[in-house]
């Protein structure tokens, strides 16, 4: 990344962001408006923008300029989902970072480094987001209905970690929904001619199509990782599903397939939801759940979202959820 720009009016946030970026990544320039940032875009640029600035004038032009430069936009997650998610949807943003200074110190450098070198993210997987040495357990379902039993194994592992009932439930939900997506939706996303199989029917999953569930913890976060071998889900599809949280009048999808709510529920259950998208090769979803005692009980006002695409062919994602 040739340049990192922070766009924020609040002095304290400017200092926090500058310190995190300068110490963890490299030089940073601070401005107060998208227009001022736009004038600085030169070569691949990463712009970290406050939600307030992103909702104001000039953000669309900044977004276009950054994209043209081959750079990236990162939105600060200030405000609830109804404030942040419309910006994500309307400006096709791939990254929402935490507004919490403690979280930012971990999350922002990791994100900027991944953007600078996006190859190999799927190989590292959840280990990238846990402290060095954290052990990951792994399970691979061979039949569709084995999902429920696998979740039982996960829950036994989580119980041994002495998580709170809420944290255990959040982790189980993340694994449940991501595994269902990987088993039922991902094959259809790659092959549009393939009909989504009825979830009531148990069937074998052929070896080449088996997803992988991994989980682990470093005492700060529990990470749930699900990887499918299709690599067919696009950032646009993920954004569309998460955007369902904007409007409470959304309804579950009817029929034999998914309800279309799983990804939105997963997002809300995490403190950080990360996708490593390797087009045509793999889709890897990682949900991080914060285990630290916090005034909000560990639920972020709006979870962070990261959609990293590894270099490769373009995707043509269909439904997911």
């Amino acid at each position: 990344m040739r340049r990192v720009i922070v766009v924020h009016r609040d002095r304290k946030s400017q200092r926090t962001l500058s310190r995190v970026i300068a110490s963890g990544v490299g030089p940073v320039t601070v401005v107060e408006t998208p227009a001022a940032a736009r004038a600085l875009v030169d070569g691949a640029t990463a712009a970290v923008v406050s939600a307030e600035a992103a909702a104001g004038p000039g953000f669309g032009e900044l977004a276009a300029a950054v994209r043209t430069s081959g750079g990236h936009l990162l939105l600060c997650g200030e405000g609830g989902p109804t404030a942040v998610l419309p910006l994500v949807r309307d400006h096709e943003l791939d990254h929402v970072v935490s507004s919490d200074p403690v979280d930012l110190a971990d999350e922002l450098p990791l994100t900027l480094r991944a953007l600078a070198a996006p190859a190999g993210l799927c190989e590292l997987g959840a280990a990238r987001y846990l402290s060095h040495g954290a052990r990951l357990e792994e399970l691979v379902p061979t039949r569709t209905h084995e999902r429920v039993a696998l979740l039982g194994r996960l829950r036994e592992g989580l119980a041994a970690m002495e998580l709170s009932a809420r944290q255990e439930r959040q982790a189980a939900l993340v694994a449940d929904e991501l595994l269902a997506n990987a088993i039922y939706d991902a094959p259809c996303a790659r092959d549009e001619a393939r009909r989504e199989s009825a979830r009531a029917a148990d069937r074998e999953i052929i070896p080449a199509e088996r997803p992988r569930l991994r989980w682990g913890s470093d005492g700060r976060h529990v990470a749930i990782e699900v990887t499918d071998p299709f690599g067919a889900v696009s950032p646009a599809t993920i954004r569309a599903h998460v955007a369902r949280l904007i409007d409470r009048s959304t309804s579950p999808r009817q029929g034999n397939g998914g309800a279309g709510l799983g990804l939105a529920m997963t997002f809300l259950a995490t403190s950080q939801l990360v996708f490593h998208l390797a087009p045509g090769r793999a889709t890897q979803a990682i949900g991080l759940i914060d285990l630290r005692a916090r005034p909000d009980g560990g639920r972020a006002l709006v979870p962070s979202l990261h959609l990293h695409t590894e270099p490769g062919a373009a995707t043509s994602g269909r439904t997911h959820g």
């Binding site: 189980a172 449940d176 269902a180």
Partner: peptide, 9 residues
């Protein structure tokens, strides 16, 4: 104790 997306539907 638990509800997933299909349970919500």
């Amino acid at each position: 104790a638990y509800i997933n997306s299909l349970g919500v539907r």
